[in-house]
Protein backbone atom coordinates (compact mmCIF):
# COMPACT_ATOMS: atom_id res chain seq x y z
CA UNK A 1 0.00 0.00 0.00
CA UNK A 2 1.16 3.56 -0.54
CA UNK A 3 -0.02 6.85 0.95
CA UNK A 4 -2.15 7.42 -2.15
CA UNK A 5 -4.51 4.71 -0.93
CA UNK A 6 -5.53 6.94 1.99
CA UNK A 7 -7.08 9.49 -0.38
CA UNK A 8 -10.73 9.50 -1.31
CA UNK A 9 -10.13 9.20 -5.03
CA UNK A 10 -13.71 10.27 -5.78
CA UNK A 11 -13.08 13.65 -4.09
CA UNK A 12 -9.91 14.51 -6.05
CA UNK A 13 -8.79 16.88 -7.47
CA UNK A 14 -9.22 18.97 -4.33
CA UNK A 15 -10.29 22.61 -4.24
CA UNK A 16 -6.93 24.08 -3.17
CA UNK A 17 -5.51 26.69 -5.55
CA UNK A 18 -2.78 25.72 -8.02
CA UNK A 19 0.48 25.44 -6.10
CA UNK A 20 -1.09 25.62 -2.64
CA UNK A 21 1.21 23.88 -0.16
CA UNK A 22 -1.59 22.20 1.79
CA UNK A 23 -1.69 19.21 -0.59
CA UNK A 24 2.01 18.54 0.00
CA UNK A 25 1.54 18.48 3.77
CA UNK A 26 -1.36 16.02 3.47
CA UNK A 27 0.87 13.77 1.31
CA UNK A 28 3.65 13.80 3.92
CA UNK A 29 1.25 13.16 6.80
CA UNK A 30 -0.42 10.24 5.03
CA UNK A 31 2.99 8.80 4.11
CA UNK A 32 3.94 8.87 7.81
CA UNK A 33 0.61 7.28 8.80
CA UNK A 34 1.18 4.60 6.17
CA UNK A 35 4.55 3.87 7.82
CA UNK A 36 2.80 3.46 11.19
CA UNK A 37 0.66 0.77 9.53
CA UNK A 38 -2.47 2.18 11.16
CA UNK A 39 -5.81 0.87 9.97
CA UNK A 40 -8.33 3.30 8.51
CA UNK A 41 -11.00 2.11 10.96
CA UNK A 42 -8.75 3.00 13.90
CA UNK A 43 -7.82 6.46 12.71
CA UNK A 44 -9.77 9.71 13.03
CA UNK A 45 -8.92 13.05 11.43
CA UNK A 46 -10.19 16.24 13.04
CA UNK A 47 -10.05 19.80 11.74
CA UNK A 48 -11.55 23.25 12.27
CA UNK A 49 -12.30 25.80 9.54
CA UNK A 50 -10.02 27.16 6.82
CA UNK A 51 -8.44 25.95 3.59
CA UNK A 52 -6.05 23.75 5.58
CA UNK A 53 -8.93 22.37 7.62
CA UNK A 54 -10.54 20.89 4.50
CA UNK A 55 -7.85 18.19 4.52
CA UNK A 56 -9.82 15.43 6.35
CA UNK A 57 -12.53 15.62 3.69
CA UNK A 58 -10.12 14.10 1.17
CA UNK A 59 -9.06 11.20 3.37
CA UNK A 60 -10.79 7.82 3.39
CA UNK A 61 -11.16 7.52 7.17
CA UNK A 62 -13.55 8.86 9.79
CA UNK A 63 -13.29 12.60 10.22
CA UNK A 64 -14.74 15.57 12.07
CA UNK A 65 -14.81 18.94 10.29
CA UNK A 66 -15.67 21.05 13.32
CA UNK A 67 -16.20 24.71 14.15
CA UNK A 68 -13.50 27.36 13.72
CA UNK A 69 -10.66 26.92 16.22
CA UNK A 70 -12.19 23.98 18.05
CA UNK A 71 -10.44 21.04 16.39
CA UNK A 72 -8.25 20.27 19.41
CA UNK A 73 -11.23 20.41 21.77
CA UNK A 74 -13.15 17.91 19.61
CA UNK A 75 -10.03 15.73 19.21
CA UNK A 76 -9.60 15.67 23.00
CA UNK A 77 -13.17 14.41 23.30
CA UNK A 78 -12.63 11.70 20.68
CA UNK A 79 -9.43 10.48 22.34
CA UNK A 80 -10.89 10.45 25.86
CA UNK A 81 -14.08 8.70 24.74
CA UNK A 82 -12.13 5.97 22.94
CA UNK A 83 -8.40 5.89 23.75
CA UNK A 84 -7.91 3.07 21.20
CA UNK A 85 -8.37 5.53 18.33
CA UNK A 86 -5.44 7.27 16.66
CA UNK A 87 -6.32 10.95 16.45
CA UNK A 88 -4.72 13.39 14.02
CA UNK A 89 -5.63 17.08 13.80
CA UNK A 90 -5.16 19.25 10.70
CA UNK A 91 -5.29 22.96 11.41
CA UNK A 92 -4.27 26.35 10.02
CA UNK A 93 -2.41 29.21 11.67
CA UNK A 94 -5.59 31.25 12.11
CA UNK A 95 -7.60 28.26 13.29
CA UNK A 96 -4.92 27.16 15.77
CA UNK A 97 -3.41 30.38 17.08
CA UNK A 98 -6.10 33.05 16.70
CA UNK A 99 -9.60 31.81 17.51
CA UNK A 100 -8.30 28.45 18.77
CA UNK A 101 -5.30 29.75 20.74
CA UNK A 102 -6.72 28.77 24.10
CA UNK A 103 -7.52 25.20 23.04
CA UNK A 104 -4.00 24.93 21.64
CA UNK A 105 -2.14 25.85 24.83
CA UNK A 106 -4.43 23.76 27.02
CA UNK A 107 -4.12 20.79 24.66
CA UNK A 108 -0.33 21.06 25.12
CA UNK A 109 -0.70 21.52 28.88
CA UNK A 110 -2.90 18.45 29.26
CA UNK A 111 -0.55 16.59 26.93
CA UNK A 112 -3.39 14.60 25.36
CA UNK A 113 -2.15 11.78 23.12
CA UNK A 114 -2.95 13.37 19.74
CA UNK A 115 -0.87 14.66 16.83
CA UNK A 116 -1.52 18.18 15.55
CA UNK A 117 -0.27 19.28 12.14
CA UNK A 118 -0.47 23.01 11.52
CA UNK A 119 -0.24 24.23 7.93
CA UNK A 120 1.09 27.69 8.62
CA UNK A 121 0.66 29.91 5.57
CA UNK A 122 0.97 33.00 7.77
CA UNK A 123 -2.41 34.32 6.63
CA UNK A 124 -6.17 33.67 6.66
CA UNK A 125 -6.28 32.00 3.26
CA UNK A 126 -9.92 31.00 3.04
CA UNK A 127 -11.44 34.38 3.87
CA UNK A 128 -9.31 36.32 1.39
CA UNK A 129 -6.00 37.10 3.04
CA UNK A 130 -6.44 38.84 6.38
CA UNK A 131 -3.42 38.99 8.67
CA UNK A 132 -3.09 36.15 11.18
CA UNK A 133 -1.18 35.86 14.48
CA UNK A 134 1.75 34.42 12.51
CA UNK A 135 1.95 37.05 9.74
CA UNK A 136 5.60 38.16 9.85
CA UNK A 137 6.56 41.78 10.59
CA UNK A 138 6.32 43.96 7.50
CA UNK A 139 4.27 41.49 5.44
CA UNK A 140 1.22 42.62 3.53
CA UNK A 141 -2.29 41.30 3.93
CA UNK A 142 -5.73 42.80 3.42
CA UNK A 143 -5.79 43.91 7.08
CA UNK A 144 -2.14 45.07 7.13
CA UNK A 145 -1.98 47.20 3.95
CA UNK A 146 1.08 49.09 5.20
CA UNK A 147 2.92 45.99 6.40
CA UNK A 148 2.24 44.03 9.57
CA UNK A 149 3.37 46.00 12.63
CA UNK A 150 2.70 43.34 15.27
CA UNK A 151 5.19 40.69 16.30
CA UNK A 152 4.08 37.19 15.24
CA UNK A 153 3.67 34.13 17.45
CA UNK A 154 6.32 31.44 17.30
CA UNK A 155 3.93 28.48 17.38
CA UNK A 156 6.62 25.94 18.27
CA UNK A 157 7.94 27.99 21.20
CA UNK A 158 4.35 28.32 22.37
CA UNK A 159 3.82 24.55 22.24
CA UNK A 160 7.10 23.90 24.06
CA UNK A 161 6.32 26.41 26.79
CA UNK A 162 2.82 24.99 27.21
CA UNK A 163 4.12 21.43 27.63
CA UNK A 164 3.77 19.42 24.39
CA UNK A 165 5.79 16.19 24.34
CA UNK A 166 6.97 16.47 20.75
CA UNK A 167 7.52 19.64 18.68
CA UNK A 168 9.13 20.12 15.28
CA UNK A 169 9.00 22.54 12.39
CA UNK A 170 9.61 22.01 8.68
CA UNK A 171 8.36 23.52 5.43
CA UNK A 172 6.58 22.31 2.30
CA UNK A 173 9.99 22.14 0.62
CA UNK A 174 11.38 19.62 3.13
CA UNK A 175 9.04 16.77 2.27
CA UNK A 176 11.17 13.83 3.46
CA UNK A 177 12.13 15.58 6.70
CA UNK A 178 8.51 16.50 7.31
CA UNK A 179 7.40 12.92 6.75
CA UNK A 180 9.98 11.74 9.31
CA UNK A 181 8.91 14.43 11.78
CA UNK A 182 5.25 13.46 11.51
CA UNK A 183 6.25 9.81 11.93
CA UNK A 184 8.18 10.68 15.10
CA UNK A 185 5.22 12.74 16.33
CA UNK A 186 2.78 9.89 15.74
CA UNK A 187 5.05 7.53 17.68
CA UNK A 188 5.55 9.86 20.65
CA UNK A 189 2.88 9.44 23.36
CA UNK A 190 1.30 12.74 24.36
CA UNK A 191 0.69 15.95 22.46
CA UNK A 192 2.77 16.12 19.29
CA UNK A 193 2.89 19.37 17.37
CA UNK A 194 4.33 19.68 13.88
CA UNK A 195 4.36 23.08 12.25
CA UNK A 196 4.66 23.03 8.46
CA UNK A 197 5.28 26.38 6.82
CA UNK A 198 3.47 26.39 3.48
CA UNK A 199 3.10 28.65 0.49
CA UNK A 200 -0.26 30.26 -0.19
CA UNK A 201 0.17 31.79 -3.63
CA UNK A 202 -3.34 33.23 -3.73
CA UNK A 203 -3.68 35.13 -0.46
CA UNK A 204 -0.08 35.57 0.75
CA UNK A 205 2.29 35.21 -2.20
CA UNK A 206 0.33 37.53 -4.48
CA UNK A 207 0.60 40.40 -1.97
CA UNK A 208 4.17 39.75 -0.91
CA UNK A 209 6.15 39.84 -4.15
CA UNK A 210 6.14 36.09 -4.78
CA UNK A 211 5.12 36.13 -8.43
CA UNK A 212 5.49 32.38 -9.02
CA UNK A 213 4.50 29.55 -6.70
CA UNK A 214 8.11 28.42 -6.68
CA UNK A 215 9.34 31.82 -5.45
CA UNK A 216 7.68 31.41 -2.07
CA UNK A 217 8.95 27.83 -1.79
CA UNK A 218 12.45 29.13 -2.55
CA UNK A 219 12.00 31.71 0.19
CA UNK A 220 11.01 29.00 2.68
CA UNK A 221 14.00 26.91 1.65
CA UNK A 222 16.56 29.71 1.88
CA UNK A 223 15.22 31.14 5.16
CA UNK A 224 15.13 27.92 7.14
CA UNK A 225 18.05 27.19 9.45
CA UNK A 226 18.69 23.78 10.98
CA UNK A 227 18.38 23.71 14.76
CA UNK A 228 21.94 22.43 15.17
CA UNK A 229 23.33 25.35 13.17
CA UNK A 230 21.13 27.83 15.01
CA UNK A 231 22.33 26.52 18.38
CA UNK A 232 25.96 26.64 17.25
CA UNK A 233 25.65 30.26 16.07
CA UNK A 234 23.95 31.20 19.34
CA UNK A 235 26.74 29.57 21.32
CA UNK A 236 29.42 31.38 19.34
CA UNK A 237 27.52 34.62 19.81
CA UNK A 238 27.20 35.12 16.06
CA UNK A 239 24.53 37.18 14.37
CA UNK A 240 21.39 35.34 13.22
CA UNK A 241 19.36 37.29 10.64
CA UNK A 242 15.89 38.04 12.07
CA UNK A 243 14.06 36.67 9.03
CA UNK A 244 15.50 33.16 9.48
CA UNK A 245 13.43 30.52 11.22
CA UNK A 246 14.58 27.32 12.91
CA UNK A 247 13.66 23.95 11.41
CA UNK A 248 14.13 20.50 12.86
CA UNK A 249 13.09 18.60 15.94
CA UNK A 250 12.76 21.14 18.74
CA UNK A 251 11.54 19.01 21.64
CA UNK A 252 10.98 15.33 22.44
CA UNK A 253 10.28 14.52 26.07
CA UNK A 254 8.32 12.30 28.42
CA UNK A 255 5.89 14.43 30.39
CA UNK A 256 3.03 12.32 31.81
CA UNK A 257 0.20 11.64 29.38
CA UNK A 258 -3.40 11.17 30.55
CA UNK A 259 -4.52 7.61 29.96
CA UNK A 260 -1.13 6.36 28.70
CA UNK A 261 1.52 4.52 30.74
CA UNK A 262 5.02 5.62 29.76
Amino acid sequence: MSFEDWYRQDRLPHIFCAGCGNGTIINCTLAAIEQMAWKKEETVFVSGIGCSSRAPGYIAADSLHTTHGRAIAFATGVKLANPELNVVVFTGDGDLAAIGGNHFIHGCRRNIDITVICMNNQIYGMTGGQGSPTTPLGCFSSTTPFGCAEAPFDLCELAIAAGANYVSRWTSYHVKELEKAVYAGLQTPGFSFIEALVQCPTAFGRRNKFKQVGDQVDYLRTHSMLKAKHDRLLEQGEHIPPDMFVVGELVRRNRPVPGVKI
Binding site: G23, T24, N27, S172, V175, K176, E179
Partner: peptide, 16 residues
Protein backbone atom coordinates in the same frame (compact mmCIF):
# COMPACT_ATOMS: atom_id res chain seq x y z
CA UNK B 1 9.21 3.71 -3.36
CA UNK B 2 12.70 5.12 -3.89
CA UNK B 3 13.20 8.88 -3.93
CA UNK B 4 9.55 9.76 -4.60
CA UNK B 5 10.21 13.41 -3.76
CA UNK B 6 8.20 14.64 -6.76
CA UNK B 7 5.22 12.54 -5.70
CA UNK B 8 5.33 13.78 -2.09
CA UNK B 9 5.74 17.37 -3.26
CA UNK B 10 3.01 17.42 -5.91
CA UNK B 11 0.19 19.22 -4.07
CA UNK B 12 -2.37 17.78 -6.45
CA UNK B 13 -1.57 14.06 -6.19
CA UNK B 14 -0.93 14.02 -9.95
CA UNK B 15 2.37 12.10 -10.12
CA UNK B 16 2.42 8.33 -10.16
Amino acid sequence: TLCGVCQLTCPDQAIH
